[in-house]
Amino acid sequence: MLKVLFAVLTGLFGAALLHLVIILSLPYFSERDAYTRVLAEGSRHIFHRLPDARDRAGLVQDDPLMEASVCAYDISEGPVRIFAQGNVPFWSMAIFDAASNEVFSINDRTAAAGILDVVLATPVQLTVLRKTLPEAISQSILVETQQADGYVVLRTMVPQPSFAPAAGTFLSEAVCAPFEWRRRQQF
C-alpha cells in the first residue's frame, strides 16, 4: 500500500515537472504564435490587411470598430521604414519582436504632426545612419532593436461606417519596406 502511495507521489511530482517544462518551453516551439501567423499571411515588408473572420493564417481583427494590418520585417540586411498618413480619427502602431515582445508603440497623438514615420534598425545600422542621416529620414523616429526579425501591427479606428473608406486608404497606403540607407561606393 505504501508503495502505491509512493508511486502516486512520484507521479504527481513528475506531473508538476512536466507542467513547468511545457509552460517554459512552449513559447520556443509553438507554431500557433503571432509571428508564425503573420509570416503565413504572405511576403515580408508588405502590410497585409486582416479580415473580420479568422483567415487561413489564423489571424483576425476582432473589434468591429477597428481595422488592422500586419507586416513582418527582417532588418538583418538593412533598416526598415514604416510610414503612413491619412485623415483617420485614430491610429496606433506597435512593433513586436519574433517572440511577440513589444519593442515600440506609438499613436497619432504621440507622433509628430500625426504622421507615422518610424525607422527600425539594429544598433550597428543606427550608428551608420546617425553618422550621415539621409535627408529622406531626417524627420523619422529612429527605433533600435536587438532582434532582426519580428512584425508590425498598424491599427486604425472606424467609429462610424462613413470612416471606413478613409481607414481603408490609410491602411492600404501604409509602407513597411527597406530603403536606400547608405550611399554606394563608401569604401
Binding site: 513559447p27 515600440f104 508603440s105
Partner: peptide
C-alpha cells in the same frame, strides 16, 4: 511565463502600451 506561454499558443495580436 504563463502569460508568455498563453500568448504563444493563442497567437493573438495584442495592444502595445501606447495603443
Amino acid at each position: 511565463p504563463y502569460a508568455k506561454s498563453h500568448r504563444a499558443s493563442a497567437g493573438a495580436l495584442l495592444y502595445g502600451s501606447a495603443e
